[in-house]
Design a binder for these strands. Structure first.
Length: 566
DNA sequence: GCGATCAGCT
DNA sequence: CACAGCTGATCGC
C-alpha cells in the first residue's frame, strides 16, 4: 500500500547506513503476528490478535520470536512555505527463529514516513503525520513519566535522552538534530485535564466485553447477546442514540435516531415497541421504509428545546444527509451535552445560535475522518466541479448518459445541481422516488421521474458505478445514447489537486465509459473537525467512530488534546 | 413464504 | 481501511 512518496527502499537503506551507529530507539515485542493460529482465526478477536503493546527496550539484546523496530530521523527538508518536513525511518526486523544467531531468517521491512513537525501553515503545535506511524503526545503536563506514544508504543522521555547523555562527546550533527527534534516533541507543554481515567475504563471494559464488535453492528459473535456500548448512552439520562441492535436496553426510555442510514437504524423493525425520537424527515422514512408505527415515534422540532423525560433536547441540522440531526441535551443545572450523530462541520454550522464556545460539557463526536489524511474540498467546490464536468462531456458528445451513484439518502445535492444546470429531470428507481419525495425539497421532487427516457441524468446505486454495470445500463438505452459517464461521490476519494477547480479523478476509462471519483463527503474533514472542536472547546470529547481499536483511540485522543490545548 | 439476520464484498 | 450499503444464504416463524 505504500507509495513512492512514503516508502523509498534504496534511499532508506543508504540513509540508515549513515545513521546506523546512532540508533535512537529500539522497541521490542513478542511478535504474535508470526504465530497466528489460522484454525482459530474466527474466535480470535482483532484486538486480541494484535501484538501486545510494544515495550521500549533500550540497548538490550534482541530476543528470539521478536520484532524489533527502530525509529530514527534521516532527513529534514524545508519547503517554500517554510514548513519543515522530517523523514523518520521506521525499521522493523521480525524473527521467527528460536535462535538468536540465525539472522538469515530475519525479515527486514523498512518504511519511510513523512512527518511534518510544528510551525506548519496549519499551525499545528505538535506533530502531524502524513501517514502512519502516528506520534501522539500524551498529556505531558500531568504525566510525571513524560511519554509520547508512537504507533501505540509508549516512548519514555528518559529512555530517549539517556542515549545522548552517554554519547554526547561523540555525537554527530545528525544526532544533535535528532535530539533537538525529540526535545521539540517532549518540550511542548500540553495544557489539558488529567487523563480521563473514567473514559479509559469504559473503553477497556468494552474491549473486554465485546472485543472489537461494539462498533460494528452486525459483527456480534453467534449466540452472544450484544450489549449497548457506553458511548451510545447519555449519562444521567434514560436516553440512547442510534442503538437499535441491542433489544430493550436496561434503563433506557427514549431511543433517539440521528438519521436514516442503515448503520444507525440497524435493528429497527416493525416489532419496535419503545419510543423513538427523531426529526420529521427521519420519522417519515422510518414509517414508509421500515413500517415503524406512528405511536412509537415522537417527532421533535428542529432548533428548539423540548423536554423529554425531564431533560431538554434540541435537534440541530447535522449537514450530513437529509433528515440528519445532532442532539443537544440540556440538563436542569444547565449542563450541555452534544451528540453530533454523523455530521459535516462546515463553517456555517458554527454559526448556529445554540452552539456557543465553552458552553458544552461533553461532545460525542463523529470521528470518521479524524486523521490528517483526510483533507477534501467543500461540497460546493466539488459540486461546481461535477457540474462543469457534465457540461463539458455533453458539449463533446450530446448522446452521453450521466449516471450518479448514491446511497439510500445522501449525495442529493450533487445530482440535483447537475439537473438544475441542465434544466432536466432526474431518473430514479421506485424506492428512491418514494424516499426522495419525502425530503421536503420541492424543486428536487418536481424534477424526479420514474421514466428513464425522460432524461439523461440517471441516479443509480453506488454499487452500479462499475464498467460492466454501466455498459449494461447504456446498452439498455442504446437508441438514444452511445456514451456513459459514471460519477462516484465518496469521502474516500482523495482529491487529485486541491488548488485547481477540477476535483475529480478518473477511476477507469474505456471507449464509451468513464468513471469519475469525486471527493464529495458528508462527514467532516480533519480540519473541519479541528475547527469545530477549537470553536466549541468542550471539556470532554468521546469519539463514536473508529473506536474499535485502542491505537486509533489513542491517536484521536492525541489530536483532541492538541486541539483543546491551543 | 416471508421477514430478519448474517457473511462476504465493495 | 471504510463510507453505507447490497447480494445471496440461512434461520425462525
Amino acid at each position: 500500500m505504500a507509495t513512492c512518496e512514503n516508502s523509498c527502499f534504496t534511499e532508506d537503506e543508504n540513509d540508515h547506513q549513515i545513521l546506523s551507529s546512532k540508533r535512537i530507539i529500539t522497541i521490542l515485542s513478542d511478535d504474535e503476528d508470526l504465530e497466528v493460529n489460522k484454525n482459530n482465526k474466527r474466535q480470535r478477536s482483532p484486538s486480541l490478535s494484535k501484538p501486545k503493546p510494544l515495550q521500549l527496550m533500550n540497548k538490550r539484546t534482541i530476543k528470539s520470536n521478536t520484532r524489533q523496530t527502530s525509529l530514527s530521523i534521516i532527513r529534514t527538508n524545508s519547503d517554500s512555505n517554510g514548513n519543515e518536513e522530517r523523514k523518520w525511518n521506521l525499521k522493523t526486523i521480525a524473527s521467527s527463529s528460536n535462535e538468536n544467531s540465525s539472522k538469515q531468517k530475519k525479515k527486514k521491512i523498512t518504511q519511510t514516513k513523512s512527518v511534518t513537525v510544528a510551525q506548519s501553515r496549519y499551525s499545528s503545535t505538535l506533530v502531524r503525520t502524513v501517514s502512519s506511524p502516528s506520534i501522539v503526545k500524551n498529556d505531558i503536563s500531568n504525566d510525571p513519566s513524560r511519554t509520547v506514544s508512537f504507533d501505540g508504543a509508549v516512548i519514555n522521555e528518559e529512555d530517549v535522552f539517556s542515549q545522548w547523555n552517554e554519547e554526547s562527546s561523540t555525537s554527530s550533527s545528525t544526532a544533535v538534530n535528532s535530539k533537538s527534534i525529540w526535545k521539540e516533541i517532549f518540550s511542548k507543554s500540553v495544557k489539558s485535564k488529567p487523563v480521563d481515567d473514567e473514559l479509559k475504563q469504559e473503553w477497556s471494559a468494552l474491549d473486554k466485553d465485546q472485543p472489537s464488535n461494539h462498533y460494528r453492528f452486525n459483527a456480534a459473535p453467534v449466540g452472544v447477546k450484544r450489549t449497548c456500548p457506553f458511548y451510545k448512552k447519555i449519562p444521567g439520562t434514560t436516553f440512547c442514540i442510534d442503538a437499535f441492535n441491542f433489544g430493550n436496553i436496561d434503563g433506557i426510555q427514549a431511543y433517539f435516531l440521528s438519521h436514516f442510514h442503515s448503520d444507525h437504524y440497524g435493528g429497527l423493525n416493525k416489532k419496535f415497541s419503545n419510543m423513538l425520537y427523531s426529526n420529521q424527515i427521519t420519522c417519515n422514512l422510518c414509517k414508509s421504509e421500515l413500517g415503524i408505527r406512528s405511536e412509537t415515534m415522537t417527532i421533535l422540532p428542529m432548533n428548539e428545546f423540548i423536554n423529554v423525560h425531564g431533560i431538554d433536547v434540541a435537534l440541530l441540522d447535522a449537514n450530513h444527509c437529509p433528515g440528519s440531526n445532532m442532539f443537544l441535551f440540556r440538563f436542569a443545572n444547565g449542563r450541555l451535552i452534544l451528540h453530533t450523530g454523523d455530521f459535516r462541520a462546515a463553517p456555517t454550522l458554527l454559526k448556529h445560535p445554540l452552539i456557543q464556545p465553552k458552553q458544552i460539557d461533553t461532545v460525542y463526536l463523529d470521528t470518521t475522518y479524524c486523521d490528517t489524511h483526510y483533507r477534501f474540498p467543500s461540497q460546493d467546490e466539488v459540486i461546481e466541479s461535477a457540474v462543469g464536468l457534465v457540461l463539458d462531456s455533453l458539449k463533446e458528445n450530446a448522446r452521453t448518459l450521466v449516471a450518479i451513484g448514491t446511497y439510500l439518502i445522501g449525495k442529493e445535492r450533487i445530482f440535483h445541481a447537475i439537473a438544475k444546470a441542465l434544466d432536466c429531470k432526474i431518473f430514479v428507481e421506485t424506492r428512491k422516488f418514494r424516499i426522495l419525495n419525502q425530503l421536503e425539497n420541492d424543486d428536487l421532487s418536481k424534477r424526479l421521474t420514474k421514466h428513464p427516457h425522460e432524461t439523461n441524468v440517471h441516479v443509480v446505486g453506488m454499487g452500479s458505478i462499475t464498467q460492466p454495470m454501466l455498459q449494461a445500463h447504456v446498452d439498455k438505452y442504446a437508441l438514444k445514447y452511445n456514451k456513459i459517464i459514471g460519477i462516484k461521490p465518496t469521502g474516500w476519494t482523495t482529491p487529485r489537486s486541491t488548488s485547481g477547480s477540477k476535483h475529480y479523478s478518473i477511476e477507469s476509462k474505456s471507449s464509451n465509459i468513464t468513471i469519475y471519483g469525486f471527493p464529495y463527503s458528508e462527514h467532516s474533514s480533519f480540519d473541519e473537525l479541528k475547527n469545530f472542536i477549537q470553536y466549541i472547546k468542550p471539556k470532554r470529547i468521546i469519539p463514536t467512530v473508529n473506536v474499535g481499536r485502542a491505537d486509533l483511540r489513542d491517536k484521536m485522543n492525541g489530536y483532541f488534546q492538541q486541539w483543546l490545548s491551543t
